[in-house]
Simulated assay, not measured.
Amino acid sequence: MKNLRNTALATILAAVPMSAWAQDATIRIISQDPGTGWYAYGSAVGEIIDRSEGEFNLNADVLPRGGGMVNPLAVGQGSADIGFATANAALWARDGIGEEFEGRSAENLRTLVGGLQAAYTTITARRAYVERTGLTTFDDMVNAENPPRFVLKPTGSQVPILADHMFEALGTSLEEMRDRGAINQISTAQIAQMMRDGTADVYIENAPLGQATMQELALTTDVVLVPMSDNVLDHMVEVGVPRIALPEGSYPKMDGDYASSNTPTILIVSTDLDDDVAYQITAAMVEARDQLAESFPPLAGWDPQAGAQPDQSVLELHPGAARYYRERGWIE
């Protein structure tokens, strides 16, 4: 699997040479495959860049490939000028953390726009399992002599990496839990069925509100959200995954807010991006905020001012973006 991912990454990184910054410039946006949210967002951002006003005549080219763990390296190595990424993956790429990024850190990554879309880490258990075992918290489940059957997405998703950090906070790891027979990694399409038929007990996910599997589970299976301790949530902050509250009512039968971790979608660039180009794109994005929110309900919660703050930008801001935010009085 890792060799396949590396081959795909090599193809992306070799795809296009670095653009030269002139008065006319093409901005390459790496998003994800057609049919995904990031691809749709990329097309909309491309149109915003095409219409942007300023010193540069910018034209956007949306690259219909990539993904959360690929895009940071594509931007860092110059095969794209802008990329969609989760803030934590961008941080891991910048610092060379984890097998995906070890030995090829992208120290030149910077944030252009932060906090575009929240993605919540959730732990969902079958109510029957909780009532039968009396295990009501994530910590209790992980530390139990007979842990539940956890189900999560396959390697290649960032969910296993997040889960590994969550287990690490409790003195174990994904690998150790796998050795105990407690981990089943399977395609998202099969997870809801496994929870319904009782072949899985607990589902670890990281996704925006309205994600299909979570919605299906909430509507078709008697499940509860399992709380994480401050120990787990604070550890996630340390690895670049800030805390957030999943609001009450986000899913049927949800009782109160749910303390969670957030992997916000951000727009990343490298330090090679011209400061004035970055300024022009940032201004255009902020000014198009209402248009984006109207076109894409998951982006309705994007607050550009909040997105400029360290907890949502996570990486250092690109100097051109920082200049725009400073002029707005949003940062010092």
Rank of each mutant, 00 (worst) to 15 (best):
T122W: 03
T122Y: 04
I123C: 11
I123W: 09
I123N: 02
I123E: 05
T124F: 02
T124P: 02
A125P: 00
A125S: 10
A125I: 09
A125D: 06
R126W: 14
R126V: 12
R127K: 15
R127T: 15
R127N: 14
A128N: 05
A128E: 13
A128Y: 03
A128S: 14
A128H: 02
Y129H: 09
Y129G: 03
Y129P: 04
V130D: 04
V130N: 07
V130A: 11
E131M: 07
E131W: 06
E131T: 12
R132V: 01
R132K: 15
T133I: 05
T133F: 06
G134N: 06
G134R: 08
T136R: 15
T137S: 11
T137R: 01
T137W: 08
F138I: 02
F138M: 07
D139L: 00
D139G: 02
D139F: 01
D140C: 03
D140V: 01
M141Q: 14
M141L: 15
M141W: 14
V142A: 11
V142M: 13
V142Q: 14
V142F: 13
N143E: 15
N143T: 12
N143Y: 01
N143A: 15
A144L: 00
A144T: 04
E145Q: 15
E145M: 08
E145V: 11
E145G: 11
E145I: 10
N146Q: 15
N146P: 04
P147A: 06
P148L: 01
R149P: 03
R149F: 04
R149T: 11
R149W: 10
R149E: 01
R149V: 14
F150D: 00
F150V: 12
F150C: 01
V151T: 15
V151N: 13
L152H: 13
L152I: 10
K153C: 00
P154W: 06
P154A: 03
P154R: 06
P154E: 04
T155H: 08
T155Q: 05
T155D: 09
G156N: 06
G156M: 03
S157T: 04
Q158C: 07
Q158E: 09
Q158A: 12
V159H: 05
P160C: 08
P160M: 09
